[in-house]
Design a protein around this nucleic acid. Structure first.
Lengths: 225, 225
DNA sequence: TGTAGACTGACCGTATACAGTTAGGATGCA
DNA sequence: TGCATCCTAACTGTATACGGTCAGTCTACA
């Protein structure tokens, strides 16, 4: 018999919907979010909305709007660089750990599935680059790094970065335009270094990969998002 | 005129109260938290409780309890080591950045206040070690590292580690017993290295300091908290 | 005596209700 | 015409209400 669809709760749904809406630009940075309006739009009561807003505020995705309500956070250059710095450090750790696990053959079934998925993701991205698939390629990019973090065996790396994911997505949307070719070549090198069990090389490549994104911001203005 | 006491909202209060209760052992790992009971205890409605529980669940401090409700998360050895690994990486980054800022004299008024506070904190801890002040010294320990992160100039380091703070506190309570003398000597060395602007030394010392905590867990059993 | 099934009470998620506060406009005065 | 004050409507935070589900117990039958 078919598995029943596990019905996720409303708070989670609202959270995801808001996440998407901010990412796609439906809600712009600085824009105030009214509970009533959101509730009506999504066809739920204010209760799940309030809870979702709280969580997103906790994550820094939303921020207080005057003395009343919340708004989409604006990120300035300094903030984004700080975020990318933290991200770099943890993704280097992830690459190093993943390679070490590969070397001592610590991978389990679950990991081999991830490796298969990674291969498919790289192949898919190569294909998508031929068309106009910026949004998809950004999604793949995020997915790639998520999988590497998974291969590290340290679940805290992903969960630690999770709250910043939306900000990261927004950054990637900006910084990866016309750079997918070089990005996915780097991804492939990192992946190979990990599989070969070369921790130093994996970390080195990841560092170079992530530092590039940071450097791109040198050219941007102060208020970006 | 005197400043008015800023009345923090109930959700925040509940969150803090739960945080404390878990830390002090009033709620034990694995123990289920009932909304009604908490609401009555704290003299508020279930609404703020629900929101606080959501946030703490999001942070991993609480976890689902069967198909209904939430419980205090149990941390096993593997999880704790993962957490400490992430913490080590980010605290090394913080130390490095703080030392770099010291070298190029980037500190501002706000930073010099932190430096003063740090000196006082170190002196205070030296005093407290003469008595039985385990809880206070643990608090100071957390505070010390928080201040170093602040000196790094990267606010994301602290905010990234914030959700794991409770777990960290619980870990420190266990691992620092009878080790305060050596811990605060290390803190002092790290602080000096930062002030002298020696980024490599600051990072090296921080790495040694944080790796010790990780190694202590080798001796613990699987299920700890 | 052990197990399966039904029932009931407790608890959770969501909706609705209410009260306090705030923001923004309108009005009056300079 | 510009600014300050007052008022009102809207919106937020918290409380209460309600419906559905889950767990635990009790009973009946093997």
């Amino acid at each position: 018999m078919e598995k029943l669809i596990p019905q996720i709760d409303l708070v989670e749904s609202v959270k995801n919907a808001l996440f998407d809406a901010i990412l796609t630009g439906e809600f712009l940075p600085g824009e105030k979010l009214a509970q009533d309006e959101l509730a009506e739009k999504m066809g739920v009561s204010r209760q799940p909305i309030i809870q979702a807003l709280r969580i997103l505020s906790e994550n820094g995705i939303l921020c207080p709007h005057g003395k009343k309500g919340v708004a989409v956070s604006k990120l300035n250059k300094k903030n984004l660089q700080n975020l990318l710095q933290v991200r770099r450090e943890l993704d280097c750790l992830a690459a190093r750990l993943a390679a070490k696990r590969a070397k001592i053959r610590e991978f389990e079934d679950h990991d081999y599935e991830q490796i298969d998925s990674l291969k498919k993701l790289i192949a898919l991205s190569q294909l998508q680059m031929k068309g106009d698939n910026h949004a998809n390629l950004v999604r793949n990019d995020l997915e790639f790094h998520k999988m590497i973090r998974s291969l590290s065996g340290n679940t805290f790396i992903q969960s630690t970065l999770e709250p910043h994911l939306l900000h990261q997505s927004r950054i990637f949307y900006i910084t990866t335009v016309n750079r997918h070719q070089v990005i996915w070549e780097q991804h492939e090198s990192i992946f190979e270094a990990i599989l070969s069990g070369d921790a130093n090389e994996a970390e080195h490549l990841t560092n170079a990969h992530t530092v590039e994104a940071e450097q791109l911001f040198e050219w941007y203005q102060e208020e970006i998002l």
